[in-house]
Computed example of a mutant assay.
Amino acid sequence: MGATNESLPNSEANAAVQEAITEEQAKFFLDNGYLVIRNVLSAEELRLLREQTQGVVDKGIAGEGVDEDYLYRVRGSGERVYWRTEYVIDKLDATKALLGHPFILKSVEKLQGNNFVPTWDSLVVKIPSQAASVPWHRDAEVPVGCADPRPIFNVDFYLDDADEKSCLWVIPGSNRWDPGSASERCARPGFDFDGAIPVQLTAGDVIFHDIQLLHGSPEGEGNALRRTIYYEFRSGEIEVEFGPHTLEYLTIKQRLLNDCIDRRKQTLYGASEKSFEYRPAGALALAGGEVPPQTEYRYPHEKYWRT
């Protein structure tokens, strides 16, 4: 069904021995639309994330008293199954600290520049023996008229192992296809594996994937839970010129990022790290002076769309 990830040079980084992705790994990502990073989460951070997200998953499976942040899919059998929860940073302490991960932020900065901004945050779940298919898709298209080469992408943190029955499938290089070619590929019936590769991971690993990369997963019958936390990042300059968010939203999320970096310093695993220094500049520089404590972490996108 295609080459394995391990057979592609520079397709993997290792956070256990690197401070950030290398130039060669960055080029692989830009060319192919994805990059695997091994050993991102320490044993303690992984334990806390698994422990805290389990409550969210249990609530989603029960389907009782859930709110608009809990989303569901329908399997081929017609069965409605829990799929994802939005605004996960708002819900858990461990996901707040996760946003401040220094390896990840240094690597995002390498790809997007120092004015990057965190945007979406979600928890996506595959329930044992109940995973619905996620058809081939792009998360979004680059804004019309944008010639800025910096990628918009998701950072996918895996809290559980992902084997061939539960992993993400990607089509390398499809991030550079024109919209028509991408639409044609997505319109094929069934889950067509042509040109695709499975990205199998161990708990604690991460994938960077471009919003234009074609990716998805077939309906699964695996017997293991798979939880993935998705954080999207965008270049601040692209957001300023094209949106979709207002300028107010950018400042809010910049301050939230600084709060999460500070929160990470208070954790056992963060205290031993060299923390990331977020230094946006120019029109996106944060105003000086005392910043009030962060008390809110859920900022609905629709409240900050540009008209």
Results as ranks from 00 to 15, higher is better:
3 A>S: 01
8 L>F: 01
8 L>I: 09
13 A>R: 00
16 A>G: 10
17 V>M: 07
19 E>M: 10
19 E>D: 14
20 A>G: 05
25 Q>K: 02
29 F>T: 06
35 L>S: 11
38 R>C: 05
39 N>F: 01
41 L>P: 08
43 A>R: 12
49 L>Q: 00
50 R>L: 01
52 Q>Y: 01
53 T>S: 07
57 V>N: 12
58 D>Q: 15
60 G>K: 13
61 I>L: 12
64 E>S: 10
68 E>G: 14
80 R>E: 13
84 R>L: 13
86 E>T: 14
88 V>H: 06
91 K>P: 00
99 L>T: 00
99 L>K: 02
103 F>I: 01
104 I>G: 01
108 V>C: 07
108 V>F: 03
109 E>S: 09
109 E>R: 13
110 K>M: 12
117 V>T: 15
117 V>G: 07
118 P>Q: 10
121 D>W: 06
121 D>C: 13
125 V>S: 07
128 P>N: 06
128 P>H: 09
130 Q>V: 02
133 S>G: 06
134 V>F: 15
141 E>I: 05
141 E>L: 12
142 V>S: 02
148 D>H: 09
150 R>S: 13
152 I>W: 13
152 I>H: 14
154 N>S: 13
155 V>W: 08
158 Y>I: 06
162 A>F: 07
163 D>K: 02
169 W>E: 14
170 V>A: 15
171 I>H: 04
177 W>V: 07
184 E>A: 15
185 R>Q: 06
186 C>T: 05
188 R>D: 03
191 F>K: 06
200 Q>M: 15
210 D>R: 02
210 D>Q: 04
211 I>T: 14
221 E>V: 08
223 N>Y: 01
228 T>Y: 00
236 G>W: 01
247 L>Y: 07
248 E>K: 10
254 Q>Y: 08
255 R>E: 02
272 S>E: 02
273 E>Y: 00
275 S>R: 00
283 A>E: 15
292 P>W: 01
294 Q>C: 09
297 Y>N: 11
298 R>H: 05
298 R>N: 06
299 Y>N: 11
306 R>N: 12
307 T>Q: 10
307 T>S: 12
307 T>W: 04
